[in-house]
């Protein structure tokens, strides 16, 4: 069993009207099964309302299944006694950096998690330093978070999760509110965690460019996994993705448009370098 495993995971909630009367049942996640190995970089794509955030919240037991089971590092998320261990194993980073930072000073904010876990002070400081270095924010440790840019705040949020020494980190659209530079910084930090620290990454995003290096991609639609495979397998299917309200990286789209203009290029070109080679340059 991998670090995160879901078996026929179904999640339903009751929809109510203004007066609180039941209007119906919504099946936000519908019999999803997946198995994520320790150290993998997983991407989850899907249009707004496809169920990807609901799925992500199952991984650190903010929500738990109506039917089926989710295990995080072997722990069943439905068993309450595992709650804190699960949240420590699988940390979560959300979209809006301003909603996640609580400390007055960067290093205090990052220390908040391990402090709550009852880690001895000396070790907390050690973890704070390591985490801030891992995301390239050590130089800002004495700053007030509200003096930071969006990308820097997101990296502090990531460091805060990292300081709890999770095996897995789930990021739900961490770059949606950032400028191009902020997006680059965050994605670079996330890739670093995965490759250098060996942390399992589950990244949810609407930016296709961010996941060309992922090991495995899941595409959600109507609560189900509609497609899965390597980025190349997924992005080779331009029309199918567009039907699912998604897209491909611009370079992939360009290669596809060149194919349509009669150029014999392979499917699923993911990087500029690949396109240059395919053009024989």
């Amino acid at each position: 069993m991998g670090i995160v495993k879901a078996e026929k995971l179904t999640y339903e909630y009751i929809r109510r009207d203004e007066e609180g009367n039941v209007e119906g049942l919504v099946r936000a996640v519908d019999e999803v099964s997946l198995d994520v190995k320790q150290g993998e970089f997983i991407a989850i794509l899907g249009h707004n309302g496809s169920g990807k955030s609901t799925l992500a919240k199952q991984i650190n037991a903010i929500l738990y299944p109506t039917e089926g089971t989710v295990w995080v590092d072997g722990m069943d998320t439905k068993e309450e006694e595992h709650l804190w261990d699960i949240r420590q194993t699988a940390g979560m980073v959300f979209q809006n950096p301003d909603n996640q930072i609580i400390g007055q000073v960067v290093e205090e904010d990052v220390g908040f998690g391990p402090e709550n876990m009852g880690i001895p002070t000396e070790e907390i400081w050690q973890r704070v330093e390591e985490s801030l270095r891992a995301v390239g924010m050590y130089a800002f440790r004495k700053y007030s978070p509200n003096k930071l840019s969006g990308g820097q705040k997101q990296r502090v949020s990531i460091a805060g999760v990292l300081a709890m020494h999770p095996k897995c980190i789930v990021l739900d659209e961490p770059t949606a509110m950032l400028d191009p530079n902020g997006r680059r910084e965050v994605i670079r930090a996330v890739r670093g965690l995965n490759q250098v620290e060996g942390v399992t990454v589950i990244l949810i995003t609407h930016y296709m460019e961010e996941i060309v290096h992922a090991d495995h991609v899941f595409v959600m639609d109507q609560g189900r996994i509609a497609m899965e495979g390597t980025p190349r397998e997924i992005f080779s299917q331009v029309e199918r993705l567009q039907d699912l309200r998604l897209d491909v990286p611009q370079v992939t789209l360009l290669a596809y448009e060149l194919q349509n203009r009669g150029l014999p290029l392979p499917d699923g070109i993911l990087t500029r370098e690949e396109l240059i080679q395919a053009l024989g340059l």
Partner: peptide, 19 residues
């Protein structure tokens, strides 16, 4: 802290490689 659209970078790359 900004960038050009990806398509622009591709064009510059291609030109640099001799197309």
């Amino acid at each position: 802290g900004l960038a050009a659209p990806q398509a622009a970078y591709i064009m510059h790359d291609l030109r640099e490689r001799g197309l």
